[in-house]
Amino acid sequence: MEPTRPSDGHPGTPSSGQPPYGGAPQQPGQQYGGQPQQPGQPPNPGPQFGGQPPYPGQAPYPGQAPYAGMPPVQGMPHGPQYPGQPQKTSTPAILSLVFGIVGAILISVILGIVALSKISTTGQKGKGLAIAGLAVSGLWLVGLVVGIAVFGDGEPDRDASGQVTTTQNTRADKLRVGDCVSEIKEAAEVRNLELVPCDQPNGGKVFAVFDLPAGKWPGLTAVQTAAEKGCVDRWAATGKQLDDASDIIYLHPIENGWSLGDRGTTCLVTPK
Rank of each mutant, 00 (worst) to 15 (best):
Y61M: 07
A160Y: 12
V269A: 03
T91V: 15
P19N: 05
A149M: 12
M1V: 14
G34K: 15
G34W: 10
V196R: 05
P218E: 06
G50Y: 09
H10D: 13
K240Y: 01
L268V: 00
G128I: 00
P83H: 05
P92N: 08
D159H: 13
H10M: 11
T167R: 15
P36A: 04
V146N: 06
P42I: 01
R171Q: 14
A93V: 00
C231E: 06
G75Y: 01
V181W: 01
E194N: 05
A236R: 10
G112V: 01
D153M: 13
L116Y: 08
L193S: 05
A187L: 11
Q52V: 09
D157T: 14
G103W: 00
C180Q: 07
D243L: 11
V206N: 06
V209Y: 06
S16L: 13
A237K: 04
S120C: 02
W217I: 10
Q74F: 01
R176M: 09
M70K: 13
P45W: 01
Q241S: 13
I254P: 02
K229Q: 12
T121V: 14
K118L: 15
Q58L: 02
V209Q: 09
G23H: 10
P19G: 04
A93I: 05
Y250N: 05
V206Y: 01
G69T: 01
R158Q: 08
L134M: 14
T121C: 02
G257H: 04
L251F: 06
Y21W: 13
G50C: 04
R191G: 11
L175D: 03
G126V: 02
D243E: 13
I148H: 15
R5Q: 10
M1H: 14
K205Q: 10
V190S: 09
G84F: 00
V196M: 04
A135E: 02
A237C: 03
G23L: 11
K216F: 10
S120R: 13
L129D: 15
Q18C: 11
L141N: 04
P60R: 15
V190E: 10
W258K: 00
Q41N: 06
G143A: 07
G34P: 15
K127Q: 15
G46M: 05
P253G: 04
D8I: 06
H10P: 08
Y55N: 11
A149V: 09
E189P: 00
G203K: 05
